[in-house]
Design a protein around this nucleic acid. Structure first.
Length: 486
RNA sequence: GGCGCCGUACCCAAGUGGCUAAGGGAGCAGUCUGCAAAACUGCGAUGCGGCGGUUCGAACCCGCCCGGCGCCUCCA
């Protein structure tokens, strides 16, 4: 039974959807005015895994993830570049899809955009005005925070605390400093839509309420996003949604922790962020492998803990994944019809499945889930040593595939990949390496096998050293052939 | 000022009251191999930031202290 840490209650709550067998979840996506960084990747990945695990557990999942495509930063960027807002948002939505595909993050069931829901937004604002929870000032509409008695229940703050700590100049037209804009009148040159209050555009928080209600209903199961959204964004969503409907909005609030650089939050102002595409283009590994390395790295820390990003730790994920793919190679090798370890392996696989679910049920403990897979790897290698039939080898590979799929890992048949030769970076000893074609590699390997056959080991070792200087490792098989990897 | 989080081996990272403190990476030794690689076997924290306290029993609960961080403003 899945338990999720619920920010609303502060506890790990047993997860039970409102409608049995069906989960409705909404996740705050990105504001599309720039490329995504590794922090966005983490958030997207966490909810991608949550969705995968819910589906693995047998739920039908309706998953909505929005794009915020009207916003001050977008307008600013468009003005700077002398282009329309559409140009900016189209470009970065496209980039988002490209980045997420490299990370293996699947598409949501619906991916609504704020600008496509103006009618819903206007309707919601009207409802709040009618109920006396919002007020008009010139062409703007504000939500009046003290009209919603539960304000602060998500972020565990009260209005007095918030006002004492306010660091921003308060708009004097507001009745309360914490009141927030539902609708903003547009200045010339800004995107605008007609409304009962004149031409304008939606405030930031209202879009998520409107879109979630449109696609998932007034009350739904899970609402997610980064921890920095707890206040004010999600607090405001709750106030305006519950204020409008009189019903609970989302039942479980799930928030992921930050990615940090040297123990500090990644942010634009500190200029310490890495975009997803930067990481991929700087990687010496092929895209599919870089994607899996990153995914493994991000999932080996619990989603609510801070995670320190470094090249070093991502590289270390490569070492950990190598072990799996080396095992898969062995599982593919010819094997007898019966193996002495077949029976015990069956038991191991059953236990593995249970332990995996137990880890994931515990608030999506992916580091533990990965540890379970690592244990299965060890057990599988031992079983191969003592004798595992080809049928069981196939079953073991399927088990890795099935559990790996929940994490989005271990799907390729092999890591015998085509390396990228274009730009090989200097290796760690500082030696310059030169590009090596695949034909060169094959040639050297063939030459080395010849030398070995002739027992000319010094030549064979020299050829192996040459390949090693290009980061290529040779592995001699018992059948007299050699395979290689980077 | 308010709210909150983190500190576990060389590195990453689970564990949050009771079996020998998971797992991975790196390292060392051994088996195998022409030598390697891979695999297997073994080694590796008498201790979980520090000091007190509660308890039959604490990394886990409480208090204080030290160190680091986040939110309270746009932010995944």
């Amino acid at each position: 039974m899945l338990h999720l840490h619920n920010t609303l209650t502060g506890n790990k709550d047993r997860f039970e959807p409102l409608v049995p067998g069906r989960v409705r979840m909404y996740v705050c996506g990105v504001t599309v005015y720039d490329y995504c960084h590794i922090g966005h990747a983490r958030s997207a990945l966490v909810f991608d895994v949550l969705r995968r695990y819910l589906e693995y557990s047998g739920f039908v999942v309706e998953f909505a993830k929005n794009f915020t495509d009207v916003d001050d930063k977008i307008i600013k960027r468009a003005h700077e570049q002398g282009v329309g807002c559409d140009h900016i948002t189209d470009k970065y939505i496209q980039a988002y899809y490209e980045d997420m595909e490299k990370l293996g993050v699947g598409r949501a069931t619906v991916e609504p955009r704020a600008t496509e829901h103006i009618v819903d937004i206007v309707g919601l604002v009207e409802k709040l005005l009618k109920k006396g929870m919002a007020y008009r000032v010139d062409g703007d509409v504000y939500f009046q925070v003290d009209r919603y008695p539960g304000y602060g229940r998500l972020s565990k703050r009260n209005l007095d605390d918030l006002q004492a700590g306010a660091r921003v100049d308060v708009d004097q037209r507001k009745r309360q400093p914490m009141d927030f804009a539902l609708w903003k009148s547009s200045k010339p040159g800004e995107p605008s839509w007609d409304s009962p209050w004149g031409p304008g555009r939606p405030g930031w928080h209202i879009e998520c309420s409107a879109m979630a209600m449109r696609h998932l209903g007034e009350t739904f199961d899970i609402h997610g996003g980064g921890m920095d959204l707890i206040f004010p964004h999600h607090e405001n969503e709750i106030a305006q949604s519950c204020g409008a409907t009189g019903k609970e909005f989302a039942r479980y609030w799930v928030h992921n922790g930050f990615v940090q650089i040297n123990q500090e939050k990644m942010s634009k102002s500190l200029d310490n962020f890495f975009t997803i595409r930067e990481i991929f283009s700087a990687s010496e590994w092929p895209e599919s492998i870089t994607g899996e390395m990153l995914r493994y790295f991000l999932l080996t820390t619990h989603y609510r803990s801070p995670l320190d990003f470094s090249d070093q730790s991502v590289r270390e994920s490569k070492g950990a994944l190598n072990g799996f793919y080396d095992l898969f190679e062995r599982l593919n090798e010819p094997a007898p019809n019966r193996g002495t370890a077949d029976g015990s392996m069956r038991v191991v696989m059953t236990r593995t499945r249970e332990a995996f679910a137990e880890a994931m049920d515990d608030d999506l403990n992916t580091p533990n889930a990965v540890a379970v897979l690592q244990k299965l790897r060890g057990e599988s290698n031992k079983a191969i040593e003592s004798g595992l039939s080809s049928k069981m080898r196939h079953a073991v590979r399927q088990e890795f595939r099935a559990l790996g799929a929940v994490l989005g890992l271990l799907q390729p048949d092999s890591w015998q990949f085509k390396p990228q030769f274009q730009s090989v970076s200097p290796d760690e000893r500082g030696e310059k390496t030169t590009p090596l074609s695949e034909a060169d590699i094959a040639g050297k390997i063939a030459a080395r096998l010849e030398a070995k056959k002739a027992k000319n080991y010094s030549l064979a070792d020299q050829l192996r050293a040459e390949l090693a200087s290009h980061g290529i490792t040779i592995e001699d098989r018992p059948d007299g052939t050699s395979r290689w990897k980077r």
